[in-house]
Simulated assay, not measured.
Amino acid sequence: MKRSLLENGEEEVKTPFSLQKKYCGKYKKGIARWSFFSALALILISCNFETKKISSEEVLEQESKSLNWKEVDEYPAFEECQQETELIAARNCFETAVAKNIYAYLEQQQPVVSKSIDDTIYIYLEVTKTGKPEIDSISAIDSTVTNQLPKIENWLRESIDSLPKIYPASKRGIPVSTAFKMPIVIKAE
């Protein structure tokens, strides 16, 4: 038993029962908190998290759906354009090299014309995923050009066939086909 003096001068006697009553409320609150957190932990631990094994084919299929296949990571390139790392510079290098080869081939044919020609022909060129260049189509050639140069279409096809080795374009390291619209200016006097 503990005795203490109150402010009004009365003596208070604290028995073990009154001390138990005072600390019992705090004890019950502590037990309630502990049991709440224990129950929460048990609920979290006992949850069944399902994991699904996905095959590499499914991952590839999902990723290929999300990729923009109209844009490439690397443009097709000739040996001389392989060092270009920027996409625009690589494309310009490739297109310039194709144009130079076409014009060089046309000059070798030494065409003779009776009237002056100043026209632009568009070649729709595809470079396959194996690196083979193919002409999809050639824009409508003006009758003046075809009258003066009846073999122009054959010469254009032969010039494309005579291109040096082309490394195909790639997307994520996978070779892909690409298409280009290339203007060819025909000037002769």
Rank of each mutant, 00 (worst) to 15 (best):
A89H: 07
C47Q: 09
Y122F: 14
K26L: 12
Q108A: 06
I121A: 00
S46N: 08
Q108D: 05
S56P: 02
R91G: 07
Y122A: 07
W69C: 01
S35Q: 06
I31G: 09
V113N: 01
S56W: 12
E107H: 05
A104C: 09
V98N: 01
E71L: 13
A90M: 05
Y105F: 11
I117Q: 03
K115S: 13
Y75V: 10
T120W: 04
V59G: 00
C24L: 11
V59E: 07
E95I: 13
L44T: 14
F17C: 02
K21H: 09
E71M: 08
L42W: 10
E63R: 01
F78C: 08
L42F: 13
Q20G: 09
T96A: 15
Q83M: 12
S116Q: 05
A39C: 11
A97G: 00
G25N: 02
A89C: 08
N101A: 08
T51P: 00
N101H: 09
C81F: 07
Q109E: 15
I54N: 01
I31P: 01
L87Y: 09
D73Y: 03
Y122W: 12
K52D: 09
Y105C: 04
L125A: 06
Y103A: 03
G25D: 03
G30Q: 04
D118Y: 09
A32W: 02
S66K: 02
A41S: 13
L125Q: 06
L87F: 15
